[in-house]
């Protein structure tokens, strides 16, 4: 059955490839840097759940979602950078949930067929059927830090940055941002700048992603 025509007044115009191209071309350097930073952050956080996805993968996926109209960008209503920030957050959520369900897009050809001793390794399907970790996975798990140990490593990381160190210890006490700003007499900008410094330091310290914790 044919879809009934909707009245024109209800039609929301969404962007096509040419409009998206135009928006990309008009991005300022500052906006591009922000997009990169958002995508890098999402990719970093995802590494705990999804293997092999970097910031560029996320940016590409964001554009595909816009063009496939999975996410409707209405240029007359929402600015491009703000819209893409929302799409990146949505991709991070989707991929994280998929990763948790074991739907991580790992190609078998990307995995070693044998361990360091040359013993054959079960493939992903066999591991999924087995359901229990193999000896190597058990060893890796036993070497994972506890969350307490990981947070102690972060405290050491911020030991040279007194403001970052203070903010981190307040976070650990469940103190919220506005309370911290109040207590330390910080403006929003000073607080956010320090937090972004912490963010950079963490990503630099754990370039492969935050380790799993026991």
């Amino acid at each position: 059955m044919n879809e009934k025509a909707r009245p024109l007044g209800n039609v929301e115009m969404v962007a096509g490839p040419d409009e998206v191209r135009g928006a990309i071309a008009s991005l300022t350097d500052a906006e591009s840097v922000k997009l990169k930073r958002l995508a890098e952050g999402a990719a970093f956080r995802l590494r705990r759940h999804v293997w092999g996805k970097d910031a560029n993968d996320i940016l590409q996926e964001a554009i595909h979602r816009v063009l496939e109209s999975k996410r409707h960008w209405k240029p007359q209503k929402v600015d491009f950078i703000g819209f893409l920030a929302g799409v990146i957050a949505s991709i991070e959520y989707d991929w994280r949930e998929r990763g948790k369900r074991g739907e991580t897009p790992v190609l078998e050809t990307d995995l070693p067929a044998s361990n360091t001793d040359g013993d054959p390794m079960p493939n992903a399907l066999q591991r999924a059927v087995n359901g229990c970790p193999n000896p190597e996975e058990q060893l890796i798990e036993s070497e994972e830090p506890t969350q307490e140990e990981l947070f102690q490593q972060m405290e050491e990381l911020f030991s040279e940055d007194s403001l970052a160190s203070l903010i981190f210890s307040e976070w650990r006490r469940q103190t919220k941002g506005p309370e911290i700003m109040n207590a330390l007499d910080l403006t929003r900008k000073e607080y956010d700048t320090a937090v972004r410094r912490m963010d950079r330091a963490i990503q630099k310290r754990w370039p492969e992603g935050m380790p799993h914790v026991r």
Partner: peptide, 11 residues
């Protein structure tokens, strides 16, 4: 906490 500071930052 970390991501909020990037999302809210001006380009």
């Amino acid at each position: 906490n970390l991501s909020k500071a990037v999302e809210q930052a001006s380009p």
